[in-house]
């Protein structure tokens, strides 16, 4: 029973990490259809931001709190720069976008290596997040995992509300549903694109901050995560947030269960097989956005 709960919690927390890294992608890839291979490097940027802040701000707790908004802005700004300098010029040429952003990802990795050195670096976690909460029956819940879960859920709620209730959110949805019609209706689509990209990249930065609580920070940390994130968005269905949310948690629990029953490598295979089978059955993903767009 203890083990079952422990595993369920592990699965949910793996899902929370997946969700955090996939959420930004759900915006830029899911909503804007831009395949940004450098998304993983925005995660890395967020993680290094935490590291740099911890060097300057003493007190691991404060530096983590400050890192959340700062990493959002740092990664978001990098995203906007990428959008203005490269992606915007390539909207009609998706294959070029892919190659260019992959190149950017390699450049950013080398940049991190030059600035911070190739060995990975670590941050200290605040005292509050190193322990665990003991529940009755010998169950424990790790504080850092709980924090990441809360952060992921907060990000989902904030994003959903923003898309539903704000005028910017309405514009974003309008552009997603029908770009041309949105443009002729007077929506400044270039500006909407830029803002969407800012938020999507910023969310990657947020994920980077969260990941410092779990493992080391290194130039290639983003690359290791980006494929899982793309899988979440593809399986969840493009253009919808709820699909990504459900799929992230489902994959997390599937991974944790598989790993418990077999080994880590076999569990990874199981997850991939499940995804392939699922996409055979529903190539459009879990949810699809119904639009009248002909594109």
């Amino acid at each position: 029973m203890t083990v079952l709960f422990g595993q369920l919690f592990t699965g949910v927390s793996i899902g929370a990490v997946l969700l955090l890294i996939a959420l930004g992608l759900a915006l830029t890839f899911g909503q804007m259809n831009v395949i940004n291979m450098a998304h993983g490097e925005f995660i890395m940027a967020g993680a290094y931001t935490t590291y740099v802040l911890q060097q300057t701000i003493t007190g691991a707790g404060w530096s983590l709190l400050v890192a959340l908004p700062v990493a959002f802005v740092v990664a978001g700004t990098m995203g906007v720069l990428l959008e203005i300098l490269l992606i915007r010029r390539l909207y009609a040429r998706p294959l070029d976008t892919l190659l260019v952003t992959w190149g950017v990802s390699l450049i950013l990795q080398q940049l991190a290596r030059d600035i911070f050195g190739s060995p990975n670096v670590q941050t200290r976690a605040p005292e509050l997040l190193t322990g665990n909460i003991a529940l009755p029956g010998g169950l424990t819940v790790a504080n850092n995992r709980l924090f990441i879960l809360a952060l992921a859920l907060a990000a989902v709620v904030a994003l959903t509300l923003a898309l539903r209730l704000t005028s910017l959110g309405r514009r974003i949805r309008a552009v997603v549903q029908n770009r041309d019609l949105a443009a002729v209706s007077g929506i400044p689509i270039a500006r909407v694109d830029r803002t969407t990209f800012f938020v999507g990249s910023g969310l990657a930065g947020l994920a980077g901050v969260a990941l410092t609580l779990l493992g080391p920070i290194g130039p290639t940390m983003g690359t290791n995560l980006i494929i899982d994130a793309f899988l979440v968005v593809v399986v969840g269905g493009i253009g919808q947030l709820k699909g990504s949310v459900i799929v992230a948690f489902a994959l997390g629990v599937l991974q944790a269960t598989g790993e418990y029953l077999t080994t880590l490598s076999v569990a990874k295979v199981m997850v991939f097989v499940a995804i392939v089978a699922f996409l055979q059955w529903r190539p459009q993903g879990l949810f699809t956005l119904r639009t009248r767009s002909l594109a």
């Binding site: 083990v3 793996i14 779990l214 493992g215 290194g218 290791n224 944790a256 418990y260």
Partner: peptide
């Protein structure tokens, strides 16, 4: 860097000790 499940298994096993042959950054996680 994902050790949630392995640590759960270790904890549930109630072993007297763990013999760790992990290499590199995995040790951090």
């Amino acid at each position: 860097t994902e050790f949630g499940t392995i640590v759960n298994k270790v904890k549930a096993s109630n072993a007297n000790a763990v013999f760790n042959t992990l290499n590199g950054d995995s040790n951090v996680a």
